[in-house]
Design a protein around this nucleic acid. Structure first.
Lengths: 165, 165
DNA sequence: TTAATGTCTATAGAAATAGTAGGGTTACAC
DNA sequence: GTGTAACCCTACTATTTCTATAGACATTAA
C-alpha cells in the first residue's frame, strides 16, 4: 500500500549495486530479443520502448554486448539486433561480467581479474577472503546455471500457475 | 612474482564493492578485539597500528559498531574498546549490515530495507529477481554462519597445518 | 538520394566510497 | 582540580562509479 505517489523509483537505498541498473537493462534487453521473432532484427527503439530503457543508454549496452559476441546487429534501415546464440546458451553470469565487470566480492577472489590484496597479510584478512570465497562460489553457481531462456520461460510458467490457482 | 614495485594496492579494479574497505576494516578491528586480553580495553590507535587502518577512519567505524551494540567503549585516559558479546556470537552478516548496509543485490530482495522496484513490472524482471533471490539466500547462509571467532581461530589452524606440512 | 538505423566518443550530474580535519567531551593520574 | 589522553561527533573533500545525455558519423534499404 506504500508508494501512493506516482513518482518513479529506481533505487533509493545505498549499496544495492551488486547488480547495476545497466546490467538489469542488459538482461531485460536480451530477454526481449529472445522473445522476438527468430531471424527478425529488433530495433533499439522498440526494445527501449518495450522495456522502458533510456534509448541512448541502451545503445551503449547493446554495443558492449555486440563487441563481446552476445548479439549481432544489422545497420541501416530495417536494421536492429539479434541474439548471436540460442537464449539457453547465454548465462546471467557472462552478461554480468560484460556489463558490470568481474563477479567477485574481493579482487583476490576474481577469476577474470585476479588481484592480490597487499593489505591483507594478517591472518584474519585471509579468513575474510575464505568466507567471501564461499559466497563467490555460491553466487557463480547460480549465475552461470541460469540463462536468458530461463528468464523468458519461467515467468510464463509462473503466470500459468497463477492463472490456474 | 608480480607486484615488484613497492606501492600500496588497495583496489584497482572497478565494482569489487560487495564488501567495502570500511567493512573489511570493521572485521579486522573486531578480530583484533577478539584477540585482545579479556576485559582489557584496546585503544583505537593500537588497533589502527596493528591492523594498518587509518585511525580517524577507524574511529568512525568503531563508533558505528558501538551505536549498534557490537562493542562497548571506555572514555578518558586508559580508555578503549571491548567486544560487547563473545566473538562467536558476532556474525559477518550483522557487521556487513551495519557498515555496508542491506545485504541484498536488489532493493526488492532486502530483508532489512525492502523496497519494491517499480520498473520491474515485466515478467523477465521478476525472473531477474528470482535468480538474485537465490544468490542472496546463498550469500546470507554463509555470512550469518561465520563469526568473528572463526576469523580468529581458523587462520591459526591453517597456520598450524602449514607448519606441520 | 534520403531517411532510418546502428556506431562511437565525449561529457555531465548524482551518489557512494574512502578518507581528513578539527573541535568537543569524558575521566584517569597526578 | 588540572592536564592530558582517550573517545565522540560533525562536517568537509577528493576520487570514482553509475546513469545517463548529446551529437556527430557510418551504413543500408527503399
Amino acid at each position: 500500500m506504500a508508494d501512493v505517489s506516482g513518482e518513479r523509483i529506481v533505487c533509493v537505498c545505498k549499496r544495492f549495486e551488486m547488480i547495476t541498473q545497466k546490467a538489469k537493462y542488459a538482461l531485460r534487453a536480451l530477454s526481449a530479443l529472445a522473445q522476438a521473432e527468430a531471424g527478425e532484427p529488433m530495433m533499439i527503439s522498440d526494445i527501449a520502448a518495450q522495456q522502458k530503457i533510456p534509448k541512448k543508454f541502451l545503445e551503449q549496452i547493446l554495443l558492449d554486448l555486440k563487441h563481446q559476441g552476445i548479439v549481432i546487429s544489422r545497420r541501416g534501415k530495417q536494421g536492429g539486433y539479434l541474439l548471436r546464440k540460442p537464449a539457453n546458451e547465454i548465462t546471467f553470469g557472462e552478461i554480468l561480467r560484460i556489463i558490470d565487470g568481474p563477479i567477485a566480492p574481493l579482487p583476490c577472489l576474481s577469476i577474470t581479474a585476479y588481484r592480490r590484496c597487499d593489505d591483507c597479510d594478517g591472518e584474519q584478512t585471509c579468513e575474510i577472503r575464505h568466507v567471501f570465497a564461499r559466497v563467490a562460489d555460491a553466487t557463480r553457481k547460480v549465475l552461470f546455471s541460469t540463462t536468458i531462456a530461463d528468464a523468458v520461460s519461467l515467468p510464463n510458467n509462473a503466470e500459468v500457475a497463477r492463472l490456474l490457482a
